[in-house]
Design a protein around this nucleic acid. Structure first.
Length: 273
DNA sequence: AGCGGTCCCTGTGCGC
DNA sequence: TGCGCACAGGGACCGC
């Protein structure tokens, strides 16, 4: 389940194999994922030089002089750099030869996306999928004041407001539960009822949880160039996520599970008020 | 504008 | 052992 940390680790992992290198053949093995692949992608990319990589929320960006390749991993997607002679398997949908190797996108559930944003259409930040996104949680613009001011009219539960991604991006289902636990805030609390002081705790918790996950993922960077790499899943011990009924690591009370917006939320009713 | 529900997709794991 | 089904999840989209 790639959330922001997994996408960022993927970006760092593949960047050295892409930047400054020229794209060879591009192969589309499916008509598309969440949306159809732009059918002209091979013509657009072949022979062009990758100028850099980036990330916006959970969108991975590969920059060229004439535009930006936008990749989303959905919930089951992952990218690896492989030797060109590794045969594609069932769920390998997109190949881009580069620097004598191949960048391969695998996505069994096909919730991901591969899109193209031409430079002539302006900054990629203006792309329809990116323009309404909230701030980056690891940048200075993300503050408790922002969380507080942006939630004054939000009556929905804080967990769902975090997931919505229009205030802050990249906090998915796992890290939303983990961050709220660390901030000791009950996930059901209406967002507009949370004080600035409590948002200070939440902002700090989000920064810490995401930064720790990225640091942990950094140790698995080698997986991006191995055939059997397990990229996308970090061996991490969560405080609450998927621990229903197990004892809270702080107070031993059983971790509870509830459903918010068709998603599971995990929390400690004793620690989180 | 914000909210809640629905849908896309397939692998996994459970109960019968 | 096999079958059917619920569930997992990011996020666009829609109607209120």
């Amino acid at each position: 389940m790639p959330e922001l940390p997994e996408v960022e680790v993927t970006r760092r992992g593949v960047a050295p194999y892409l930047e400054g290198r020229i794209v060879g053949n591009v192969t589309l093995r499916h008509t598309g994922l969440r949306w159809p692949f732009p059918p002209e992608l091979p013509r657009i990319l072949t022979g062009r030089t990758v100028r850099g990589t980036g990330r916006r929320g959970k969108y991975l960006l590969v920059r060229f002089d004439h535009g930006t390749l936008i990749i989303h991993l959905g919930m089951s997607g992952h990218i690896r750099i492989l030797p060109q002679d590794v045969p594609p398997q069932k769920h390998d949908h997109f190949d881009m030869q580069i620097g004598g190797q191949v960048l391969r996108l695998t996505d069994p559930r096909r919730f991901g996306a591969v899109l193209w944003h031409a430079a002539e259409d302006g900054d990629v930040e203006n792309h329809l999928l990116l323009r309404a996104l909230g701030v980056e949680p690891l940048e200075e613009k993300f503050t408790a004041q922002l969380l507080h001011s942006q939630t004054r009219a939000r009556t929905a539960a804080i967990k769902q407001v975090l997931l919505a991604g229009d205030i802050v991006v990249g906090v998915g289902n796992i890290y939303a539960s983990e961050s709220l636990f660390r901030a000791r805030i009950n996930p059901k609390t209406p967002a507009h009822r949370i004080s600035l002081a409590r948002y200070e705790r939440l902002a700090q918790a989000i920064r810490e949880v995401l930064a720790e996950a990225i640091a942990q993922g950094g140790s698995t960077l080698k997986d991006f160039i191995s055939v059997n790499g397990q990229s996308g899943y970090f061996q991490q011990s969560y405080f609450v996520y998927a621990r229903t009924g197990e004892p809270c690591r702080i107070c031993n009370a059983p971790i509870r599970q509830l459903v918010q917006g068709q998603r599971s939320t995990f929390y400690c009713a004793n620690c989180q008020k």
